[in-house]
Design a protein around this nucleic acid. Structure first.
Lengths: 343, 343
DNA sequence: TTAGAAATTTTACGCGCGTAAAGTTTTTGT
DNA sequence: ACAAAAACTTTACGCGCGTAAAATTTCTAA
C-alpha cells in the first residue's frame, strides 16, 4: 500500500478507475457489481487501504448495520459467554455488534437504550435486567427499534423472545435429586433480580407437588448482583439454623451455589454423594466456573449454542421482515443435566 | 413532550426560539452559551425530546467523543470488572465508551483496532492480548490513534502505560509465604498469554535469590485462555508426580489457582494453614471469585480503583494534549496482600 | 449612561456518502 | 452479428450538522 492517504470515496474511485457511485455500490454489497469491476476495486483496495467514513455512510441510511447487544451484568461470566457467541455470529454475518452492560442498574439500562435508539441499529438483542427494568420505557423503545429479547422475558415486549426453558431446568434437577435421594430444599433469593428465578420457583413447587413431596423453600436475603456473596452469607445462616430436615439443597442458580458451597466448606460440611458426605447441592445454569467448585457442581446447563443460534436467526428474520413480525413468538430451549460431584 | 417528532436541529432550533448555530454550540458544550439561552434550550428539550444525529455530528469532527475500550478476554471477570469501572468513569465525563473484547484472538484484536481507527475516537484504552498481539500492527495503530495501554505493557507502544506492579505482587506473596512457612514453588503456564506472567516469573526468581532460596518453577502445559482448566489438569499432574519437596505453591494468577485448588480437592489434599493441611496455595490478582474458592484464596490484589482512576486521568490529559504526549510514561501501582485461608 | 465586550443571529459553505435519473458502454443470448 | 439487458458513468441533489464571517443584539463595567 502506498503512503498516499485517501480522503474520500471520490479519490479512491479515481485511483481504482471506477466511478464513485459504483464504488459506493460495491461497499454496500460487493456482489452487486460485475466480477471484473469488483476485482479492480479490490486490487485498488490492497494498494491504497481505504475505508468509507462510517459516519457519512450511516447518516443517510434509515438503518445502519449496527446491532446492539445489551446484557444486564457483564461481570457475570454467563453473560460474557453468551454475548461472545452472539457477537462472533454477528461479525460473521457482516453486522457490527456493539456490546453494552447495564451493570445491574435500571438507569443505565434506559440510558443505553436511549443512545441505542439514536444509533439507528438494524436490530437490538436485549437481555433485560428483569424485575427492576423500566417496563414502560422498554416497551416504548421496542416500538421504535426492532428488538429481540433474550435470556429473561418481559411479557408482550419485543418482537420475539429466545431463552431457556426454566421448567426444563427444574424438572430435571428435581427429578434427578428425588430419584437418587431425598427431595431438595430450594435455596433462592427473596428478591430475585431476574424473572427466571420466579419461574424456577414455580416449576419447583409444581414438580414437588407432582412427585408428592412438600415444597420447602429457603429464601436468602440480599440485593443486587453479588450472588456468590449472598449464597455464602445466607448459606452460613442456612447451615447454622438447620431449618430443613433434608440433606439436599437445590440452588436457584450456580452463582448462589458457588457461595453456598463455600459456606459448606467453611462449616466443614462434606458435600457430594460420597459416603462421608452429609449434604447434596445442585443448581442451574452451568456457570463457566461450576466445573471448578469444590466439589464440582452438579447442575443443569443452558444450551448456549442453540440459544445464541436462535437469537441470531431471529435477528436476521427480523431484519429481512423490515423490523417487525406479524406476531410475537417465544422460543424456549430445553436444558441439559450435568452430573458432577456435588449431588 | 408533544408527539411531534423533530427531524433535525433546524426544526428544534425553531421550536426553542434559538438559532441553529447557537443550539449546535449548546450541544457541544452547554456551558458555552449564556445561562438564559441554555435555559430556553433545555426547556424546549423537555418538551420535544430531540437528540442530534450522532452520525452527522461525528462526520465533521476530526475526533469524536467516543472512547474505545479494548480488553483481551471479557469472559474473564477480572477484565469485566476493570472495564466496568473505566466505562462508568467515561460516562461521568461525558464521553461515550465503546467496549470490545478480543476474545483471545489476534485477528479479532487487529479487526477491532481497524474499525476503531475509522471511528475517530478521542482516545483508545487498550489492554492488549500480549504475547500473541500483532506488535507491528498495534504500533502503527498507536501512531494514528491516541492510545493508552493498560494491564499489560507493550514496550514503547502507546502514549502511556498504566497497570499494576508485578514485582509488588510477587515480592509480597513470596515474602509472606517464606516468612510463614516453606518457600513456594511457582506454578505457571509454559506459554503465558500475558506478558505480566513473564514479569512475575522474573520477580519470583529474583525474590527467591534475594532471600537465599532456590527458585522452583512448575510449568503447566496448555494454550489459550482457559486458565482454570489448565490449572486443574496440570494441577493434577503436579500433585501426582510430586515434583517438588515443598508444601507451598504460588500460582502465577488466581484463575490458575482456582483450577489448582479444584485439583487439590479432587485428590483429597487439604489446603490451608490449619493443622491437618498439607499444602498452602497462594496466587495473584484477587479475582472476583477468589473469595469463594475452597478454601478461600490467599492472594495479592490489584488496586482496581487506582489503576482505573489513573487510566482515566491519563486519557483526559491525552485528549487535552491533543492526542500526544511529549514522552511516554509508565504508571505502576503496588498490589495489596489479601490473607484468606489457603495460605 | 455609554462604550466596549460578549453572545447571538444570519448567511453560507463544506463534510463524505447515498442515491436517483439520464446517457453510455459492456455483456448476454440467439 | 445484433438487439436487448445489464452494468456502468455522469451529473446532481440531499442528508444533518460543524463552523466561519459579518451583522446585530445583549450584557458588563465604569
Amino acid at each position: 500500500m502506498s503512503g498516499n492517504k485517501i480522503r474520500n470515496m471520490e479519490e479512491f474511485a479515481a485511483l481504482s478507475g471506477i466511478s464513485r457511485p459504483t464504488v459506493s455500490k460495491y461497499f454496500n454489497d460487493p456482489a452487486s457489481v460485475r466480477a471484473s469491476t469488483r476485482a479492480r476495486i479490490e486490487a485498488a483496495l490492497e494498494e491504497h487501504e481505504y475505508r468509507p467514513n462510517i459516519y457519512a455512510v450511516n447518516q443517510n441510511r434509515r438503518l445502519t448495520k449496527n446491532v446492539g447487544i445489551v446484557v444486564p451484568y457483564l461481570a457475570d461470566p454467563f453473560f460474557a459467554e453468551i454475548a461472545r457467541k452472539i457477537e462472533l455470529r454477528c461479525i460473521e454475518a457482516g453486522l457490527s455488534p456493539i456490546l453494552f452492560s447495564s451493570h445491574g442498574e435500571k438507569e443505565l439500562e434506559t440510558e443505553i437504550l436511549d443512545s441505542l435508539r439514536s444509533m439507528k441499529p438494524a436490530g437490538v438483542l436485549l437481555a433485560p435486567l428483569g424485575r427492576i427494568s423500566d417496563r414502560g420505557f422498554i416497551e416504548k423503545f421496542c416500538r421504535d427499534v426492532p428488538t429481540i429479547l433474550f435470556d429473561s422475558n418481559l411479557e408482550d415486549i419485543g418482537e420475539a423472545f429466545v431463552g431457556s426453558d426454566n421448567f426444563s431446568f427444574v424438572s430435571q434437577s428435581v427429578e434427578y435429586l428425588t430419584r437418587t435421594g431425598n427431595p431438595p430444599v430450594l435455596f433462592e433469593m427473596v428478591h430475585p433480580a431476574n424473572p427466571n428465578a420466579n419461574k424456577r420457583r414455580k416449576a419447583y413447587v409444581s414438580m414437588m407437588d407432582r412427585l408428592g413431596f412438600d415444597p420447602q423453600i429457603f429464601q436468602a436475603e440480599g440485593h443486587g448482583w453479588g450472588f456468590e456473596e449472598i449464597g455464602f452469607k445466607e448459606g452460613l445462616r442456612f447451615l447454622d439454623q438447620k431449618p430443613a430436615r433434608t440433606d439436599t439443597v437445590l440452588c436457584s442458580n450456580d452463582r448462589l451455589a458457588i457461595g453456598f458451597l463455600s459456606a459448606c466448606f467453611e462449616r466443614g460440611i462434606q458435600v457430594g454423594r460420597g459416603e462421608n458426605c452429609t449434604l447434596r447441592v445442585a443448581a442451574h445454569d452451568d456457570h463457566p466456573f461450576s466445573r471448578f467448585t469444590c466439589p464440582s457442581l452438579t447442575t443443569v446447563a443452558h444450551d448456549y449454542d442453540q440459544v445464541s443460534n436462535k437469537v441470531i436467526e431471529m435477528l436476521f428474520e427480523l431484519i429481512e421482515s423490515g423490523g417487525h413480525f406479524e406476531s410475537r413468538s417465544e422460543h424456549l430451549f430445553p436444558a441439559k443435566l450435568v452430573l458432577r460431584s456435588s449431588a
